[in-house]
Design a protein around this nucleic acid. Structure first.
Length: 416
RNA sequence: CGGAGUGUAGUGUAACGGUAACAUCCACGAUUCGGGUUCGUGGGACUCAGGGUUCGAAUCCCUGCACUCCGACCA
């Protein structure tokens, strides 16, 4: 993409109505726009990041054998009345709306009820199981207080996967596979080293659920980490009983702040029983379908990545989710040669499948550099009179600041 | 939802109760050309909304709304 075609601009100053690092930087760089407290639009560059994250998630979901669907945001209250989750006294962050006729509707904060109801039309025999289905869809939660930029919004994207099994045994097996998929997702988006699987409250069906918590000072959660065993315990379930069950001593745990980037839990028949989702087994007996649910917030991952890797100059994207592989920066000079070469290079890099963000604007070098630093593409590639003179290109790695001079051939090898 | 704070050009900040300024930004012209160059000219705000006090309100008071922070909440 040519930068001249992009409508977004960068700002020199932090927005005054944000404190969170992720929001300040993403707004300054033109990745997102704040519409309301906790409600953000994704602008072209931000959307590219989000889509990269979503595609990584999709690949891992596919590996799990899950299929994608898209359910609606508008939901039928009757489903929630069956599980006793419609009343404001029970669930206080509903966004509710209504038809012209006065009939109430809900804007979904989750989709367990809906997908359970849906599966009643499709699951009736043990032969139909298992089913694994997910979506990446907008959720609405009427948070009393939005905060932390895109980390905790009122409208946000969520990948929610639901599993339908014939028994607790097969659920457990899938649950472990899902854990693996989640670990790979966080690894791939660059957060693997600082993301811990964390014991959290589980509800009625199982004692624990598991959260994926990424260490960060910007985090809202307090967890107790075992570096050695590579897991953590959420403060909310930390007690003698839990320690015994998990098999670790309190003094081997270190308290840390963390961001919850994912959560998986076993639902059992919590939804299938009240909503009547059952199947007939090999012996002709009717049994409730055993469910699990698995969430990840792609926007929250994006915010966490910004919080984690940004430096004083701006955002630093991991290669896997950067909006572009390389920021090609042309510096205006004496003649047309550099511009022509930059154009050519943009075309040839793009043709070879490398995603290039091309700064073809006529602006000063300093402004372009500052801009590139703020936007945070993994590499910055300079084409100027100076690089022409050298007969090579200057390639800087954003994360390290390391600069090297490379030939065209080396350039293609490095970026591929 | 309890508590505290803040609302002024697109953005970020000024302005004693005396009639909105600076920077950035945008346009034009020069200048410069490897870290947000420099200079000139011009543009851009009924100061969140509504009420009140006053000769006079961005400024004081009230109400509402928005935003931020702390707390509660986060199934």
């Amino acid at each position: 993409m040519r930068q001249s075609q992009l409508f977004t601009k960068t700002r020199r100053e932090d927005p005054k109505d944000e404190v969170a690092k992720n929001a300040k930087l993403l707004i300054r760089a033109g990745y997102i726009n704040k519409e309301l407290a906790g409600v953000y639009s994704y602008l072209p560059l931000g959307l590219r990041v989000l889509n990269k994250i979503n595609n990584i998630i999709r690949e891992e979901m596919e590996t799990l054998g899950a299929v994608e669907l898209a359910m609606t945001a508008l939901q039928n209250p009757e489903l929630y009345e069956k599980t006793n989750r419609w009343e404001d006294a029970v669930v206080d962050n509903w966004f509710k709306t209504q038809l012209k006729s006065g009939t109430e509707l809900g804007l979904g904060f989750t989709h367990e009820e809906m997908i359970t109801e849906l599966m009643k039309s499709h699951i009736s025999s043990y032969k139909d199981l298992p089913v694994y289905a997910y979506q990446i869809q907008t959720k609405f939660r009427n948070e009393a207080r939005a905060k932390s930029g895109i980390m905790r919004g009122r409208e946000f994207l969520m990948k929610d996967l639901y599993s339908f099994n014939d028994s607790e045994v097969s659920l457990n097996d899938f649950y472990d596979q899902a854990k693996g998929a989640y670990e790979r997702i966080f690894e791939r988006v660059g957060l693997g080293d600082i993301t811990y699987i964390t014991f959290a409250s589980g509800g009625t069906f199982s004692k624990f659920s598991h959260e994926f918590q990424t260490l960060s000072d910007a985090g809202e959660d307090t967890i107790y980490v075992s570096e050695e065993k590579k897991f953590a315990i959420n403060k909310e379930v930390l007690d003698e009983e839990t320690l015994a069950e998990v098999g670790i001593a309190r003094e081997d745990l270190v308290e840390k702040k963390a961001i919850e980037v994912g959560n998986i839990f076993k639902l059992g028949d919590k939804f299938s029983a009240p909503l009547g989702l059952s199947f007939t087994d090999e012996n002709g007996a009717k049994r409730p379908v055993i469910m699990g649910s698995y969430g990840i917030g792609p926007g929250r991952i994006m915010g966490t990545v910004v919080e984690t890797f940004a430096d004083e100059k701006g955002i630093v994207w991991p290669k896997s989710i950067a909006p572009f592989d390389v920021h090609l920066v042309w510096l205006p000079g004496d003649g047309e040669l550099a511009a022509e070469l930059a154009d050519k290079l943009y075309d040839s890099l793009t043709e070879s499948g490398i995603e290039v963000f091309y700064d073809d604007r006529s602006a000063s070098a300093g402004e372009k550099f500052a801009n590139a630093d703020l936007l945070g593409m993994p590499y910055r590639l300079i084409v100027s009179d100076k690089t022409l003179g050298e007969g090579k290109f200057e390639l800087m790695e954003r994360a390290t600041g390391e600069t090297r001079w490379v030939s065209e051939e080396e350039l293609f090898d490095l970026l591929k």
